[in-house]
Design a protein around this nucleic acid. Structure first.
Lengths: 242, 242
DNA sequence: GGACAAACTTGACCTAGATCAATGTTGATT
DNA sequence: AATCAACATTGATCTAGGTCAAGTTTGTCC
């Protein structure tokens, strides 16, 4: 199936790399882009691979990860709709990009994009803002990886999933919310620097304490959102980050 | 003591935010900057503080860190000469910035800088490149925090310190190199997601295995650089990152 | 040069999370 | 509706690194 729509109708138009572009600029982007679908589990970019992809995640969830020689693996980023993939001008990808779900990507012709960004301040400025946001998230994740307990780690991802769920359904974050866990236990373990077994055990523990209700392994209800937040031990000051 | 020199004579001229600027642009920067010295241990910016500083680290070492409510602390960045401090347009600092050494900073008038960067593409482009490099380092650190053992973590910081040492003395990385450890054991523990005691023990262990020779707690010699690299378990592919 | 504090090391013990090993659940395929 | 393969859970045990408690070394300030 051939997917295609013009930038003007794109669901991520106002949050992606193109957010600051005006109509003429959008048209130039339209010329060098195409949508491509990947299915769950598919590796979109291999670390070490040449001519990596440049584009935006339109829908679904993808993961960025890196491994040590002996196979220990750490996720270094979670890509949600509107997130940018790739680094202009880079020849070799430093991370694996894997579709966690079925995923749709707006891909740009690499060479054309590298030229376009050089004389489109709106693109460059947006990329700067997005990269700085990413850096803030990466640093917040460093705090999680270095200092949080397994239980706090699980509560923290659940908060992320809850936010994403609320956004997808255009609903409010609050008590009684229900959302999907878009990653396998293995992917979560790689994200949190834990093992599968520990992830599973902490889900069970949070269930037992009544913090979450598990409809099944992939669907969670949260009777008391503030309690979940507290379990995550996030900064009181709300982590002012932008 | 009043420190001051023109941008043209600045030691970090070709690697800092100003790297891509031409002469006229440098002059505009000259007008809005001043050098400020901080002494070891001093907190330069408090997380949560308003009107945070914008500037470049000229000499010394500073740390970026973030804490949980109960005091657990994680370093989220190590600032070396030429690194940029702050985020244009941000009102509240999300991290503590602390001088690990005596430090010299080239500070910009915040409001002036925010305006200047908006119409100086050379600044904006440089900031984008630097931010992307920071993001890559942050992600590499995530791999360390999530998946490396205590011994690998210590070997990894030592490699960083060795690189910095070689750069400061304009010498080559190789066998028999000698360098200074610019952080306390406590700062290293916060950087690596460990405790002071574990840091200390791993130093002793690496000494006992002959990987390092400790002249004193802060001065290290490395008889076999490749061996140290191996102890850090870094990617075989050299971690192509730029 | 003695006293004090900060930084560092070392030992004994404990525990959160890893590892090893089944077992259960779900959903796709025939 | 039986089979198979992912995916997930649970239990028993082990261990890397944390915690608690002394010491030691270093440098600074009268």
């Amino acid at each position: 199936m051939e997917i295609n729509f013009r930038c003007g109708e794109c669901p991520i138009r106002h949050r992606a790399i193109c957010a600051y572009c005006d109509e003429p600029e959008l048209e130039r982007l339209d010329d060098i882009k195409s949508y491509k679908a990947y299915s769950a589990g598919e590796t979109i970019v291999w670390a070490g691979e040449e001519a990596p992809l440049i584009g935006s995640l339109v829908s679904g969830v993808a993961t960025l990860s890196r491994s040590l020689k002996d196979g220990r693996r750490q996720m270094v980023g979670l890509l949600l709709p509107s997130d940018f993939i790739g680094r202009p001008g880079r020849k070799v990808a430093p991370y694996d990009v894997v579709a966690a779900n079925d995923v749709l990507i707006c891909q740009f012709r690499v060479n054309k994009f590298n030229i376009l960004i050089d004389d489109t301040p709106a693109l460059e400025r947006r990329l700067l803002d997005m990269t700085m946001d990413e850096l803030d998230s990466a640093r917040e994740w460093m705090l999680l990886l270095g200092r949080k307990t397994a239980r706090e780690k699980i509560a923290s991802v659940l908060v992320i999933f809850a936010r994403r769920g609320a956004e997808l359904q255009h609903s409010e974050l609050g008590d009684g919310l229900r959302f999907e866990v878009p990653l396998t236990r293995e992917a979560m373990a790689d994200y949190l620097g834990l093992t599968i077994e520990t992830v599973s055990r902490q889900f069970s523990a949070l269930k037992k304490s009544g913090v979450i209700i598990m409809e099944d392994a992939r669907h969670i209800r949260v009777p008391d959102y503030v309690r979940l937040l507290n379990e995550a031990s996030d900064d009181s000051d709300g982590g002012v980050i932008a």
